[in-house]
Design a protein around this nucleic acid. Structure first.
Lengths: 359, 359
DNA sequence: CGACAGCGTGAGAGCGCTCCCACCGGGTCT
DNA sequence: AGACCCGGTGGGAGCGCTCTCACGCTGTCG
């Protein structure tokens, strides 16, 4: 066009990819038409569409996402927010499973998954800033602790957000998916009662995590329904070592218990250790249950009876719900709760096992 | 300025975040100066800088990434590419560890991690398109199989790329980090030879994966150095079940072996099962080693002697190398190889263990 | 005392895209 | 027959940012 200015209008950078303009020229249509053809082809004649399609193939055209999202205010990406990725969270297959599920939900879309892990407080304010900055269209937050207060401020920004695991604070407008931890806890109580154990105890998780609280609640309810007393409750931090220590305390206070429900498989492992150290056999003297159906539950010295939960489905659901929420904001769907199932293994079998004979 | 056009120049969208222009006005400087102040503050007077800083805080200004990357051609994000996230890969803590490490490397930067998982061929061409589309500044590829041919085409696009795990094909210009799988295999041979085992066999991984091939190579070298014959080699697919089947074959062919090296802990678990099923004790009859120092190695019925590798460090290194490569393209650093260590547990202890008495 | 750096600054163009609007032409309705 | 609609199209503005360039202004040197 205006050739008068001395400096070149566009430096031909060596390996710059073709622009929409180039595409349009190649296809013999206008930039507008090319754009329409690319984006679903509404109000585009078949001929024009075909010409653009061919040009796309020829040029290897790939739309510039930055330019697009600059004007649409959409980024075609969502964030997976993982607060406090401590060792526990990381070693759980949980993490991998959540990612797999979300990826699965995203697979037919061109939405990308951005990972946001905040270890420190500093990180989490950065994370928050990032989320508020409009860098993603939505977020999935793996909720853990009572202390995740910023979850609330996040939700308040209006960014479409789905929580995986019920957040501690649900007084604000929040949608989440979760597994039925109450039901799982009840299942554990029912099972142990069902195999004739009567003096039951539990090693519960931290009192500031909804999953732990719910499992404990279900456990108590199950005991009550079975007509059994509530029995001793000790708390641990979802780690193997923590649970071992808790189990020792338990045995010291109530030496005659005959069944223990540990609120996670990793903790059950610790309990198992402690029981063996104390000379008790499993399940001979004490029947033991875990929770999660973690890989170690199956490979443990005494394979653990445990509770399994459809985590992949849950993550997929979180992904699809988020996509829907992004597509049609304002709809505030109900929480989705997935039910849990019992997985029976040797640690609660009635007959003594080989490893029980170990001790 | 030009008030003549009938339509408003800028629709005041309800909750649109402040722009650089707004910032500049608030700070009483020009857009250019505001921009400079934000980006390192080069050639900006202290007063202007202070004014901008204050305005940033007041307005809660967050730069629009899309606009920025539109002009800079930088996205401030990198991709983690995981080809074929099958069950095996997912259940490994490997996955989580890699992500943790990379996140760690990124933490002082504002670079974001985008996850690209391609399960199907269809996915992987999409992945490739995405990477070539300039949507990320670089990529870290978790390399697995011989068949990952597109890794090459990726590398050829000139996108800064680091492989985690030596790619099968290194004839092209490729930088990678890896653990010393050869050394690890050798360590296994040395250890088993060291405790007096003489008729050694291995359950190796798939022959199309570099990690498996390297471990096997190291194993053979170690045997040779110990003056032992090469012994039987069976291949399995890195799964527990596959390894169990392989172990059965092994026992059928060579009933008198007294030591087995499984190229992964998960496989060692399968071997352990098979041995017990065949009435062999571990380590009494047969000493057993795994590889990876997976969580199950410790919790297995007979805790496994295994090889540990600094995976987090490796992942961190991959991250920092990528950042460097992005910063200063063209530098083609040497591959970095991390050494491995032996972790001794009951499965190779000389004295028979309790669980050995099980069988 | 005039020329010349060089720092700090602002104007303006433009990154690649979408979207609004005006336009054209052929069918349909009154 | 004229008004109208509507599918298909192109022109043009503008998203929010960076970056080049030109312009003062102060200080320093010849």
């Amino acid at each position: 066009m205006k050739t008068s200015p001395p400096r070149p209008l566009r430096q031909v950078t060596a390996r710059s990819s073709p622009t929409l303009e180039d595409l349009a020229v190649a296809a013999g249509v206008s930039r507008s038409t090319a754009s329409r053809a690319i984006n679903g082809g509404d109000r585009v004649s078949p001929e024009a569409q075909a010409a653009v399609d061919r040009a796309v193939a020829d040029l290897g055209y790939i739309p510039n996402r930055a330019a697009r999202s600059l004007v649409t205010r959409r980024t075609s990406s969502i964030a997976l927010v993982i607060p406090e990725p401590d060792v526990r969270v990381m070693m759980d297959p949980f993490f991998a499973v959540v990612i797999t599920g979300i990826t699965e939900a995203l697979r037919e879309t061109d939405v990308q998954l951005v990972l946001l892990m905040s270890r420190t407080d500093d990180d989490s304010s950065r994370t928050l800033r990032y989320l508020r900055g409009g860098h993603v269209d939505g977020a999935i937050v793996v909720s853990h602790h009572k202390a995740d207060s910023w979850a609330r401020s996040l939700a308040e920004t209006g960014l479409p957000t789905i929580f995986i695991g019920r957040p501690w604070d649900t007084t604000f407008d929040v949608t989440y998916v979760d597994t039925d931890n109450v039901g799982g806890g009840r299942l554990a109580a029912q099972h142990l009662a069902g195999i004739g154990r009567r003096r039951l105890a539990t090693v519960a998780g931290p009192a500031d995590m909804t999953a732990a609280v719910d499992r404990l609640r279900g456990w108590k309810a199950g005991l009550a329904e079975a007509g059994l007393p509530e029995g001793p409750v000790v708390h641990a931090d979802f780690t193997t070592d923590g649970a071992a220590a808790a189990a020792h305390r338990l045995l010291a206070e109530d030496p005659d218990i005959d069944g223990i429900f540990a609120a996670s498989d990793l903790m059950a492992l610790g309990v198992l250790e402690a029981l063996h150290a104390a000379g008790r056999t499993v399940p001979g003297d004490i029947a033991l249950m875990g929770y999660d159906n973690h890989a170690v539950a199956e490979t443990a010295a005494t394979p653990l009876t445990t509770i399994t939960q459809p985590m992949v489905e849950m993550a997929v659901k979180a992904g699809t719900m988020l996509l829907e929420e992004i597509e049609a904001p304002g709809s505030h769907p109900e929480p989705v709760i997935y039910s849990t199932e019992l997985v029976e293994r040797a640690s609660t079998s009635v007959a003594p096992t080989a490893s029980a004979a170990n001790a």
